[in-house]
Design a protein around this nucleic acid. Structure first.
Lengths: 337, 337
DNA sequence: CCTTAGCACTCTATTCTATCGAGTGCCAAC
DNA sequence: GTTGGCACTCGATAGAATAGAGTGCTAAGG
């Protein structure tokens, strides 16, 4: 396995990817010769392309057609030619800026709007995962009576997000019970991360009061384990990206399984990657898809991520730029509060 | 315009719809003769079908093919043969029952789970609209400090739903200000429908307190106007329902415009209908779709609706049964609290 | 007058063949 | 190592022939 790619082979591979992304058709040696601006004949390029095929970077759909990149080819392209730090498209930059200065509203809306922004920028399906509840700090606890034996627990966290849970009481609680328990819990738990809640330690002797506190604590612990929020937009873009209706269906069906998408994104990020291509995803129905992700950072911490799912044949530089732009924009916006 | 449909023509139309829904292929006279169990020859049926075509209930895709129903044909079928009150499919019934006895969690999850249930039952895209905030009664108001000049307003309504809004203060407010304002507002507004909030009438003289009350009231008024929540699931089912990828794309793109879907459903319901077929929808990209809707009733009041979007060529009896089943199930479940 | 068998007709879908052309691999020459 | 030349492969396109489903019409029968 030589695998050595000299600069000319690299240039050829690059041209094939660029042109195939642009034209959606296998690209042949003369096409490369014309477009890549290199001073060699198509025959020479043919030889090189032959080698690239044997090394697994290109394939021919059938004997007498041009080549298209393999997943490995795309991988080389992304690793070698895509400069993350660069964003050529000024329009894109401006519209993202504008979006985030105008953005407002609750967290949930923020996320779903961001997801919509991303899908609009790239024309692929976009995913935004909300901050996992584990990392947020408790800011305030409120207990609100629903009916005599049921109480709604409201928890506001340090980011202004609200989580709620219904408590079923063993015995009735008065308004004043609720109020004192609310105050006590808020005082006691303010600033505590949801992830590190201990057991109830105090017993005041007041049964009603203790019941409320215990139940609340249990509810809070449950909250932290709850599925993190996911916002997926742009299903229609999937239908535009593939022309086999079967592919569309299976990709959409996969995207509907939110937990799958979330763990997919998590996997990619945990490897320190921003891009996962086709078979690298390890999910059969997404074999023709690539995923581009980026965490967003609020107050120095990676609290969530954004990503998007498109065909392997995508414009990686543009898409990566968009994802990076949106993730930093979102991070900044959320850091402001 | 005679338009008269005698019982034999009706039986033929019915057979055509049934068979076309089942087989997705134009159905011919002999097919009808065989399946409809009527004692006439194909030739007779041909004559009748010819009339039905001239009256606009059937069409031929091309000369020398069987017939398929027009929107008008489906309409007649639904109005004449579909008995809403009847649900033949026991399995369906059981699984819906089971779902609603096991269902729990916040309203939002309830709705999205219901949407998923419906999409699973019918294999079409499902829509659930949450209760419009206008009709709900205020149960409790809480003000929570985010930072010195920003306050989070929490409103719990009579159904246990929580709405939130951030207030920007002109000047800082203390914790005790917040607490007294919370108490005052809760006492004052408990039981008031969000839709009928008046102006602030009291001025206590305490500037800080008055500011909080005014801002809160404004925020609450804004809340009532906010878009009602919509839960749409089953995009992948759209890809299964049509085999032209263009159709899939345009239908999906339309479904992504939630406000459009909501007003569509509202329109249908406001005409007292439960089914709208193809061109009746008045939305060009949905020309090949039908919509089946039903409101759900909580404590005697229609607070929201569920619906689903599939191809005009759908199994109306089954789908209507499913929608009715789920809507009554959801209504009951929400009435219990 | 309604029904029906018979039949000619139409049009799609399928198959087959022929042709075209893009692109390749290889070879021999530079 | 590079390149022009060339035979070859194979998909895509078009045209012709065929098969079959289903119709509309007509004329005969109840």
């Amino acid at each position: 396995m030589s695998g050595s790619i000299d600069s000319r082979k690299a240039a050829i591979l690059r041209a094939v990817v660029d042109e195939y992304v642009k034209g959606a058709e296998p690209v042949g040696s003369s096409h490369v010769a014309r477009v890549a601006g290199m001073q060699v004949s198509p025959a020479t390029i043919r030889n090189e392309m032959n080698v690239l095929e044997h090394e697994g970077y290109l394939v021919q759909p059938h004997t007498s057609a041009g080549r298209i990149p393999t997943d490995k080819g795309y991988r080389y392209y992304v690793d070698t030619f895509v400069d993350e730090t660069q964003n050529s498209d000024v329009m894109q930059f401006k519209s993202v800026e504008e979006f985030f200065t105008k953005a407002h509203g609750a967290l949930a809306e923020m996320f779903s709007d961001t997801s919509r922004l991303l899908t609009k920028l790239t024309n692929y399906a976009a995913v935004v995962t909300g901050p996992s509840p584990e990392t947020s700090l408790i800011r305030s606890i409120q207990l609100v009576s629903l009916d005599p034996k049921r109480v709604l627990l409201l928890m506001v966290d340090s980011k202004g997000a609200v989580e709620k849970k219904t408590l079923d009481l063993a015995s009735e609680a008065s308004e004043s019970d609720l109020e004192s328990a609310s105050n006590f819990l808020t005082k006691k738990l303010r600033g505590v991360p949801l992830g590190s809640l201990g057991d109830a330690d105090s017993s005041s002797g007041d049964l009603q009061f203790d019941q409320l506190c215990t139940l609340s604590l249990d509810a809070l612990k449950e909250l932290k384990g709850e599925a993190e929020s996911v916002y997926i937009e742009g299903a229609s873009k999937v239908a535009s990206a593939f022309d086999a209706v079967d592919t569309v269906r299976s990709v959409l069906a996969t995207l509907e399984q939110h937990f799958l998408v979330v763990s997919l994104i998590r996997d990619v990020l945990s490897k320190g990657q921003k891009v996962a291509i086709g078979s690298e995803l390890g999910i059969e129905p997404l074999a023709e898809c690539s995923v581009v992700v980026s965490p967003y950072i609020v107050e120095g911490e990676k609290v969530g991520s954004i990503g998007l799912v498109g065909p392997t044949r995508m414009n990686y530089p543009k898409v990566l730029a968009a994802v990076n732009l949106v993730s930093t924009g979102l991070g900044k916006r959320l850091s402001e509060g």
